[in-house]
């Protein structure tokens, strides 16, 4: 492969600029390999996050030619290298430096969601019984590697900056995993409606499209959650029943 030119966004919250770097892309290399090579050849202080380099930890999220992707799972032979390849940080979060953004908001949102609360164990030895088919859908959600690409691409966060009022796709998936967990007894629908702002999502499915774990975020997590919220808060019959239901 001939040398490839990259345009990498450099800078911090005060200012950024694109700088060009050229490096050799060998057989089978991924974008993260090229970034590492650039670090060791010409830009040792180029900031980027990464850990596993195997698509399992979700650290190296970036926008490659405008597409939100994991740098470690994007092969050079998949992208057009006739033009310089652009690498930018995620846009939905404040920039720290170069390709690294401050994603701490996500950790705060997660902490605010009510934790797992299991029912009493099914067996005297303190264990439970669950059928595989009943855990399949929860296992899909639990594949999430918290790369936050779904948060990055969601226009409610990216364009409308609704961070304080909107939990974002990652946390809808997290909540769905808890709500649909066969053992869980907690109720988070009020949280989803109010603090989570799930009503803001207008199911454009951009999150599903970018998910590197292929979780069907919109169809399997967000829409069922929206339906539950509607049943709980807007269904006239349910409201009527609730008036006579003893308080929890």
């Amino acid at each position: 492969m001939p040398p490839v030119t990259f345009r990498i966004s450099r800078g911090d919250k005060t200012s950024t600029e694109f700088r060009e770097y050229t490096t050799e892309a060998g057989e089978g290399m991924v974008v993260l390999d090229c970034v590492h090579q650039i670090q060791s050849e010409s830009a040792p202080d180029l900031a980027c996050r990464w850990n596993c380099k195997a698509g399992k930890c979700g650290s190296c999220s970036a926008e490659i030619n405008g597409q939100p992707r994991l740098m470690c799972m994007t092969r050079m032979d998949m992208i057009d290298t006739s033009q310089p390849v652009t690498i930018e940080p995620l846009k939905s979060f404040p920039l720290i430096r170069d390709l690294v953004t401050d994603v701490s908001w996500n950790y705060r949102v997660k902490k605010s969601i009510k934790p797992f609360k299991p029912r009493k164990p099914d067996a005297p030895d303190g264990t439970w019984r669950m059928q595989q088919k009943d855990v399949d859908r929860v296992q899909e959600f639990r594949k999430c590697i918290e790369c936050f690409l779904c948060q990055d691409v969601c226009h409610v966060l990216r364009d409308h900056h609704k961070h304080p009022e909107f939990a974002g796709p990652r946390h809808f998936v997290y909540t769905a995993a808890l709500e649909m967990h066969p053992l869980d007894t907690e109720d988070r629908l009020g949280q989803m409606k109010h603090e989570g702002g799930i009503g803001y999502c207008n199911i454009t499915k951009c999150c599903t499209k970018v998910c590197p774990e292929h979780i069907t975020i919109t169809d399997n997590a967000i829409i069922p959650l929206k339906e539950r919220v509607v049943d709980e808060f807007y269904d006239p019959l349910t409201r009527l029943f609730r008036m006579f239901k003893p308080k929890k």
Binding site: G126, T127, Q132, Q139
Partner: peptide, 17 residues
């Protein structure tokens, strides 16, 4: 077992364990 009590979802046997 403790991990299961904290929310882990392991693959299951036919009898649900």
């Amino acid at each position: 077992k403790e991990l299961e009590a904290w929310g882990a979802v392991f693959d299951r046997t036919k009898d649900g364990r």
